[in-house]
């Protein structure tokens, strides 16, 4: 996979249908910002695009690119933690 140029901006995921990350900081406090929880069993998984590290390179991942496959999506508190 081709390496993409890496800037210094904070990298984050973007949920499909929302404004992409970056740009001016939100004028509302974080807690009241847009997205409410939409994940629920039996419902479509919220699509997103996000930067990722994969096998020595930096890449971009889009959830809907995995359509047609089973996918295990695992969140965890942070790198270099102990559990």
């Amino acid at each position: 996979m081709a390496d993409q140029p890496q800037g210094c901006a904070r990298v984050t995921g973007t949920v499909a249908g929302e404004k992409p990350a970056g740009g001016p900081p939100p004028d509302r406090p974080l807690e009241t910002r847009g997205t409410t929880m939409t994940a629920r069993v039996g419902q479509k998984a919220p699509d997103f695009t996000a930067p990722a590290y994969h096998k020595g390179g930096f890449t971009s991942v889009k959830l809907s690119d995995f359509a047609g496959k089973w996918l295990l999506l695992c969140f965890y508190p942070g790198d270099f933690t102990f559990v």
Partner: peptide
């Protein structure tokens, strides 16, 4: 792939 979500946008969508 190890995904980065520094602003928590994806995590928010998944609760």
């Amino acid at each position: 792939p190890m995904v980065s979500d520094q602003a928590g946008n994806v995590g928010r969508a998944y609760g």
